[in-house]
Design a protein around this nucleic acid. Sequence first.
DNA 1: ATAAAAAAAGAGTCTTTTATCTTTATTTAA
DNA 2: TTAAATAAAGATAAAAGACTCTTTTTTTAT
Lengths: 151, 151
Amino acid sequence: MISKTCGYAIRGIVFLALEQNKHRKHGILEIAEDLQIPQHFLGKILQDLVRRGIINSIKGPHGGFFVNAKTIDTPLIEVVEAIDGLGIFKKCFLGREECSSTNPCPLHDEFDGCRSAIFKTFENLKIADLVTKIDNGDSYLSLNKEFATEI
Amino acid sequence: MISKTCGYAIRGIVFLALEQNKHRKHGILEIAEDLQIPQHFLGKILQDLVRRGIINSIKGPHGGFFVNAKTIDTPLIEVVEAIDGLGIFKKCFLGREECSSTNPCPLHDEFDGCRSAIFKTFENLKIADLVTKIDNGDSYLSLNKEFATEI
DNA sequence: ATAAAAAAAGAGTCTTTTATCTTTATTTAA
DNA sequence: TTAAATAAAGATAAAAGACTCTTTTTTTAT
Ligand code: FES
Ligand code: FES
């Protein structure tokens, strides 16, 4: 659905916005190791997000990435738009050149509702919502090795 | 969601299984032109489907691709499995290495139901169902230029 | 037998996505 | 004012997906 890159972006932002993280800066190495994302790749993604104003950064010693005033209120769709573009919601499921409700493919009606639901979810969910889930211990940004080993 | 290749596969099979098509053979060139899919690329895809027994083919003059006894009863999930594999339904939305319901990412609960619904739809829908939609004039395998021009 | 038609197979290209490595620019602190 | 830390940028590469071109094999019809 959304690209791996876009998932990295969302996880990176949420990491910065977590309650215990949001008042300090984080170097790219720290974020990448914590989230288990290739460092320089994540670097470029976060740089994009800085340009878009979704997060901030400063260079130099004690520099790093950090949240700004709008970060936690950013709807996920804005991140998706920044990274993947909204075109991902407009592709025909069967690979036709266009998706059209007046000239639909045989899967259009089956899945169009689902696609709209996903789109709306991305519109409604904000970074803050994901942060809450994690602060509550309901979900996790990286795979928890403890869970994997406690067989 | 599913790959472009997989969409091509489904459209190719459905084309062969349409009421007016199902009693004769069709050359790859004819199919590719009709569906507007790159010829040799579609050729390879259909060859895969022949190996899987989903459709049949014979070489030589008057040869081509054609439906067999099981074609119309093939559930779409079987085509998806053949082309993309079922792994596409098991990837974490946020690009973590694994998707886990005991150690979920913050989008897991939001979208897992939707993903299951899509999976079940692919399990339940058969080629015959798509053929019916097209025979009824409810949907189309290729973009209809008439629709595009009749502004 | 031979030629032609068609799928099958092989090999290669182009593009996009994902990832790595290296260099540069900026900032801080000593 | 120099060294170190760090983001930013640039260049390259690896992998996957999508597509093309060429050759081979099989079959049919003459
Ligand atoms: S999804 Fe195929 S036409 Fe809309
Ligand atoms: S979708 Fe992310 S853990 Fe399941």
